[in-house]
């Protein structure tokens, strides 16, 4: 009896999780000018529509550029921060830890609006720079958290061993610490990238005339059109994400099992 109930709940969960994705996948191949499920006739023309005109491609490029550049900066700031917070005891450490995860705790709309109102407008920051700053802020918590949790399990006595054998502090970090937290860094960077790439609530405040990220462009599109182009685009993005996740699993998965 209990098992049956459990099975039913599981089914519900999976239906709600996967149902919309399946519906979108199927209806993206519909022929009609509006979303239909199941479609009456089949066509690939909405997939072709994505690449007609440059609006999605330009937005895609903007998204990739912003997410990538922001990612690198977030890593440059986040890695040393995570290292310092795991390795050392210092005054204000708890405050710093909270500060680094606060962008996740504050609603994106609030953060986005605050950034726009008090930073972007005040300092007259151009659109690309604004996007870059906003996305760095979104990604920082993910990078710091994932690398931190990796470093918390790291045995710093191997770093001390390297130093006792003559390595400098910096040398020991690059030759001993870094190779052993590689999986955490890759995971952190990729998760942060996905988070930034899919972000709407902050981007919506940062984008401006002529410059848009892909999710914002999609939002604009669905406000005006109701055809399955967005469904088709979503399927492509899902495929991209799936490939990325597969790569993470392979990369991190394998190096994770070969260490220790």
């Amino acid at each position: 009896m209990a098992n049956r109930w459990l099975g039913f709940v599981t089914l519900l969960v999976f239906t709600f999780l996967l149902g919309p994705l399946v519906i979108m996948l199927v209806s993206s191949f519909g022929e009609a000018g509006v979303l239909q499920f199941p479609p009456e006739n089949w066509s690939l023309k909405w997939y072709a529509n994505i690449f007609q005109g440059s609006m999605f491609m330009t937005a895609f490029q903007t998204s990739i550029l912003v997410s990538f550049a922001g990612n690198m900066l977030a890593l440059l700031v986040g890695l040393p921060a995570a290292y310092a917070m795991s390795r050392f005891q210092f005054k204000g450490k708890a405050f710093l830890q909270t500060l680094f995860i606060s962008p996740v705790l504050i609603p994106g709309i609030v953060l986005g609006f605050a950034l726009l109102r008090y930073i972007i407008v005040t300092f007259q920051i151009p659109v690309y720079t604004a996007l870059f700053i906003g996305h760095t802020i979104i990604m920082l918590p993910f990078i710091v958290r994932v690398i931190s949790s990796n470093l918390d399990n790291f045995d710093f006595s191997i770093e001390e061993a390297a130093v006792s054998l003559g390595a400098s502090r910096v040398g020991a970090f690059f030759r001993i610490v870094l190779p052993n937290i590689k999986s955490g860094i890759i995971a952190g960077v990729l998760i942060a990238f996905l988070e930034s790439f899919n972000n709407v609530d902050i981007s919506v405040f940062m984008t401006g005339p002529g410059v848009s990220t892909l999710p914002i462009q999609m939002l604009t599109y669905v406000e005006n059109y109701f055809d399955p182009t967005i469904a088709a685009l979503s399927v492509l993005l899902m495929a991209l994400t799936a490939v990325l996740m597969f790569v993470i699993e392979r990369l991190v998965g394998i190096s994770y099992f070969t260490k220790k």
């Binding site: 045995d155 006595s157 191997i158 001390e160 061993a161 390297a162 130093v163 006792s164 054998l165 003559g166 390595a167 400098s168 502090r169 001993i176 190779p179 052993n180 260490k259 220790k260």
Partner: peptide, 18 residues
């Protein structure tokens, strides 16, 4: 530390796993 040339043996071995 790195200029001392003392050999240190740790409780948990502290070998470089990679």
């Amino acid at each position: 530390v790195n200029k001392r040339n003392f050999g240190f043996v740790f409780q948990n071995y502290a070998l470089f796993p990679h």
